[in-house]
Write a protein that binds this DNA or RNA. Structure first.
Lengths: 221, 221
DNA sequence: GGGCTCATGTAAAGACTATTCACATGAGCT
DNA sequence: AGCTCATGTGAATAGTCTTTACATGAGCCC
């Protein structure tokens, strides 16, 4: 018998006794399942089935179901940091424009990667038992923190709050909007406006409260 | 044999063949289990065991596990409405003071009733298949909406936004703070301040952004 | 090439949960 | 007293989680 592993490119399907890339396959399977049925409606066995292996195989790569979830959350935070940093783009062309982009990127991530987002924030993974995860989360938050600092220096000293607090306020608002209204399909509530508009308005009002000279950079038509 | 149901007051434990109040007992059991292990770590069978009945008994009262969760979320929204309305107290003695109380009540509910809160917002119950649940949620939100309206009329007309938007902003911020930092024990992130302080500061800055004449009612020392 | 070793996968088994169905019980009404 | 029906039981099916002993073959060393 000689169907060792050369039966065409193993583009997607498993081949032979050894899968070759089971860990990745399981993570991808879990992502699809979570996106479809929420973090609770994903089973270890189903991921194994999807990858074409026995129900026991995943235990060679993850101690248990929770460790797989942690892995997903970890990757989620890493990707989150990347897309947030890209959106912030070091504050170009100006901090306000970049901050607006940042907020939109936040909501876009929650919408287009609901599986990552819920693993990161709604799966109830204990942060204190997983240093790596906490650090990845902190790095993602650091992007927001940096943005807040850069925006803060454009504000009048008199009413300027600690930038950490600004960052927390913006984070909480973005997260609140994302989790209450962010994911279109499911049984979520509907709004008289898009989540993006809601967040942008909130941030503008908030910054005005901190003394931001009125009006966003005039829209170029 | 004659231990029908008279063995003392059935204060807490089940008695005889018929439990007498199984539905309530199951709901209470579920609340404790959810509070302890999150909405996912609650099983129908364990609730039945806690109530001292067979695993099949709960099906006489709830179609399935999800219907029990929906029931909990429904009661959660009802209690939520009550405590929010009580905190708002029709805007006495003045809307700003009452709004501050409202925010604190919001966070207090999330902290002291984590089981209700997570059933309401994190259990992924589809709102569109459960009209009663949606309406209960809407009624709770209506308290916030009313508060926003009352605060809005104290603001200068020029910068006054739709009160619905104000209510949504405040709701999102409160929810964001509650779900990111609100539940003390577990593996949540820690803060350089209390969630209450964080929310109060956010709302004050936000309202100043809407033209609120500076300074909260002077603190009486 | 031949053979060894170890990571990776399988099969089978025990324990638990969800859910259903036929049957038992007894509370409340007549 | 006798009926009836809501409420609870037991047993059975199906699916999941997890462990354990065993199988396979990829990579390496000679």
């Amino acid at each position: 018998m000689s169907w060792s592993k050369d039966s065409g490119r193993p583009g997607h399907g498993p081949r032979g006794y050894h899968h070759g890339n089971l860990k990745e396959a399981l993570l991808r399977a879990a992502l699809e399942l979570i996106a479809k049925k929420g973090p609770a409606g994903f089973t270890f066995a189903e991921a194994a089935r999807w990858a074409g292996v026995s129900p026991a195989a995943p235990y060679r790569h993850f101690r248990d179901r929770d460790e797989l979830l942690s892995n997903i959350a970890l990757r989620g935070f890493q990707q989150f940091e990347i897309i947030l940093a890209k959106a912030w783009d070091d504050g170009r062309p100006d901090p306000m424009t970049a901050l607006d982009r940042l907020g939109k990127a936040y909501l876009a991530f929650a919408r287009t990667e609901p599986a990552y987002y819920s693993a990161m924030f709604e799966a109830g993974i204990p942060l204190d038992t997983n240093l790596e995860l906490r650090e990845a989360g902190d790095r993602a938050f650091a992007v927001l923190r940096t943005a807040a600092e850069r925006v803060a220096v454009t504000l009048p000293v008199s009413s300027r709050p600690p930038s950490l607090m600004m960052a927390l306020h913006i984070w909480a608002t973005a997260h609140g909007i994302a989790s209450l209204f962010g994911r279109g399909d499911a049984g979520r509530r509907t709004l008289p406006m898009t989540p993006e508009e809601l967040l942008e308005a909130a941030v503008l009002v908030y910054l005005r409260g901190l003394g931001l000279p009125d009006g966003p950079p005039p829209p170029k038509p």
